[in-house]
Computed example of a mutant assay.
Amino acid sequence: MAQFLRGKAAAAAAGEAALRASAPAPWRRTASASYHHTLQAVPRETAGPRAAARERRHGRVPAVLLTLAGAAPGNGIAHRQLLTADRGQLAEMLKQSPYFLSTPVRLQVRAGERSNAIIHDGTVLPIKVHRYGTGNILNLVMVKANEGTMLKVDLPVEFKGEDACPGLKKGGFLQKIRTSLVYLCPAEHIPPKIEVDLTNLDVGDRVLMHDIPVHPSLKLLSKNETMPICKILASKPIEPVE
């Protein structure tokens, strides 16, 4: 009887082990709504093209987390941490947020794929997502975005008020000259986008870089702040025939 009970207990233990082995790693579980707001990652030990290719074959994206040497701009990089993120989660976050590269996100780094131990939990700014020509994600670069840290951010420009624009109502044409602007921003005041209001523009009007209202802590990084972002033309320019 005792031998029977020991055998039954051993079988149950083996079954539990199999369930644990087949369950997804804690950093890949998607039941929580925070899946779309917190990027999950684990450390990787090796760099180089072969190691990166191996990560991609297993459905992961090689990533790098940069820590700046100080809060002031131009201090350089103090530390690089090699990470790997789940490709499916990263693709979903990119899909959900059109301003992913100008929006600080929460990064949670676990000790390993099967570990619940968290070794880093903080805010980071994604600054680069490299892709293949097919659109597949190649790798990700992030920087620690602690409060007070000055970061150079390429902010996308979004035009609003086209339906109410007097110049466009007259049949004018909106010439979009810049689709993004580069600002030096403190980590706590990074806007996801720069909005250009067209509601009061007539034919012949233009919006210049220094016309855009932003938080006073932001500094426009441009050699010529009087360059136009957009113009309202009387008609669409004729494209030259090649």
Rank of each mutant, 00 (worst) to 15 (best):
Q3E: 15
L5Q: 15
L5G: 09
A9W: 10
A10Q: 14
A11S: 11
A12L: 14
A13P: 02
A21L: 11
A23I: 01
P24T: 03
P26A: 05
S32C: 04
S32I: 01
A33N: 07
Y35S: 10
Y35T: 09
T38Q: 11
L39A: 09
Q40P: 00
A41V: 00
A41C: 00
V42F: 03
P43A: 01
E45A: 15
E45Y: 11
R50Y: 15
A51W: 04
A52I: 03
A52W: 04
R54V: 12
R56M: 08
R56C: 02
H58F: 14
G59F: 00
R60Q: 13
V61K: 03
P62T: 00
L65K: 07
L66P: 01
L66I: 06
L66V: 10
A69M: 05
G70W: 11
A71F: 10
G74V: 03
N75E: 15
I77G: 06
A78F: 10
R80Y: 11
Q81M: 13
L82E: 13
A85Q: 04
L90C: 07
E92R: 15
E92V: 10
L94R: 09
K95H: 15
S97N: 15
S97R: 12
Y99K: 08
L101H: 03
L101Q: 06
T103A: 08
T103S: 14
V105W: 10
R106D: 10
R106H: 12
R106P: 00
L107Q: 06
V109W: 07
E113F: 12
I118Q: 08
D121Q: 05
T123H: 05
I127F: 15
I127V: 14
K128L: 15
H130R: 15
H130I: 06
R131N: 09
Y132L: 12
Y132S: 12
Y132H: 15
G133E: 07
T134A: 13
G135A: 02
G135I: 05
N139P: 01
L140T: 04
M142D: 04
M142E: 07
G148S: 07
T149N: 14
M150D: 10
L151V: 02
K152A: 13
P156F: 05
E158G: 02
F159K: 02
E162Y: 06
A164T: 11
C165L: 01
C165S: 09
P166E: 05
P166G: 06
G167M: 00
L168C: 05
L168D: 05
K170W: 08
G171K: 05
F173M: 05
R178Y: 14
S180C: 08
C185R: 01
C185E: 04
E188R: 00
I190N: 04
I190A: 08
I190P: 06
I190W: 05
I194R: 01
E195P: 01
V196K: 05
D197E: 12
N200R: 14
L201M: 12
L201W: 03
L201P: 03
R206S: 15
R206V: 09
V207D: 04
L208A: 10
M209G: 07
M209E: 14
M209R: 12
H215Q: 06
P216S: 03
K219I: 11
L221I: 11
S222D: 08
N224A: 04
E225Q: 11
E225A: 14
I229S: 03
I229K: 07
C230Q: 05
I232C: 08
S235E: 14
V241W: 13
